[in-house]
Amino acid sequence: MVSSYGYMNHQSDQYYIARVLAGETNAFSFLVARYQNLVYTVVYRVVRNREVAEEVAQDTFIKAYKSLSSYRGEAKFSTWLYTIAYRKSLDAIKKEKHVMSTTLIEEISEGEVGLVNDALSNLQAKERKKIISDSIMQLPEDEAVIVTLYYFEEKSIKEITKIVGLTMDNVKIKLFRSRKKLYSMLKHHILPEINSNNGRAI
């Protein structure tokens, strides 16, 4: 017999939203459980501080709960939620007067991209995840979020434009540039034999 919790835990976002709006406030906890890790990841990629990220993630869900009646379902709930998280993250940066980091783009050939992918595939999943996460954290905050949403949350370009408030062309450009930067950083992490040959593969 499936418990009522197990049954509810597999319902759609819209199901929980309807329950909350009908006065069943506890149903919101299912949405929090479903998205808390992903919201924290998006926020942390912007604010770069664990304590601040936890606070902003919490504020995101409070804001989402209070604003739930204004959610019209025109975008996915996750897209709407990440938009709140991203804006609150930018507010936190402004409060801390944090300056966005910049990373020099190093040219990387498609052949080197293939070598990086091969090297990544040979790593243990945990180690691979850490190296990629560490490299993403070296990207400027807006690019780190775009990469996270596109490659890890599998958001479309259109959805990302809603979240970060940029045009589709801008998102595409940032995605292209950040991918090059990311592979360049990954190359330095895992391919020392390429680095020691002035960026040329052996």
Score class of each variant (00 low, 15 high):
Met1Gly: 14
Ser3Trp: 03
Ser3Thr: 15
Gly6Leu: 05
Tyr7Ile: 12
Asn9Phe: 08
Gln11Lys: 15
Asp13Ala: 10
Asp13Phe: 03
Tyr16Ser: 14
Arg19Thr: 02
Val20Arg: 04
Ala22Tyr: 04
Thr25Ser: 15
Ser29Pro: 09
Phe30His: 13
Leu31Tyr: 04
Ala33Arg: 10
Ala33Phe: 01
Arg34Gly: 04
Gln36Thr: 09
Leu38Ile: 00
Val39Asp: 05
Val39Ala: 05
Thr41Met: 14
Val42Leu: 12
Tyr44Leu: 14
Tyr44Arg: 10
Arg45Pro: 02
Arg48Asp: 13
Arg48Ala: 13
Glu51Ala: 12
Glu51Arg: 10
Glu51Met: 10
Glu55Gly: 06
Glu55Ala: 10
Glu55Tyr: 04
Val56Ile: 14
Ala57Ser: 15
Ala57Met: 09
Asp59Leu: 10
Lys63Ile: 08
Tyr65Asn: 01
Leu68His: 07
Tyr71Gly: 07
Gly73Ile: 07
Ala75Gln: 15
Ser78Met: 03
Ser78Pro: 04
Trp80Asp: 03
Thr83Val: 01
Thr83Cys: 03
Ala85Ser: 10
Arg87Val: 00
Lys88Val: 05
Lys88Glu: 08
Leu90Tyr: 01
Leu90Met: 08
Asp91Phe: 02
Lys95Arg: 15
Glu96Lys: 11
Glu96His: 03
His98Tyr: 13
Val99Tyr: 09
Thr102Asn: 08
Leu104Thr: 10
Ile105Arg: 12
Ile105His: 03
Val113Cys: 08
Gly114Trp: 06
Ala119Leu: 05
Ala119Tyr: 02
Ala119Val: 02
Leu123Pro: 06
Ala125Met: 11
Glu127Tyr: 03
Ile132Tyr: 00
Ser133Lys: 08
Asp134Ile: 00
Ser135Leu: 06
Ile136Phe: 00
Gln138Val: 05
Gln138His: 11
Glu143Gly: 12
Val147Phe: 08
Tyr150Trp: 00
Phe152Arg: 04
Glu153Val: 00
Glu154Ile: 05
Lys155Cys: 09
Ser156Gly: 04
Asn170Ala: 07
Asn170Cys: 01
Val171Thr: 03
Ile173Lys: 08
Ile173Tyr: 10
Lys174Pro: 00
Leu175Gly: 06
Phe176Cys: 09
Lys180Ser: 09
Lys180Phe: 01
Ser184Leu: 03
Leu186Tyr: 10
His188Gly: 11
His188Cys: 02
Asn197Pro: 04
Asn197His: 13
Asn198Lys: 11
Gly199Met: 12
Ala201Met: 07
Ile202Pro: 15
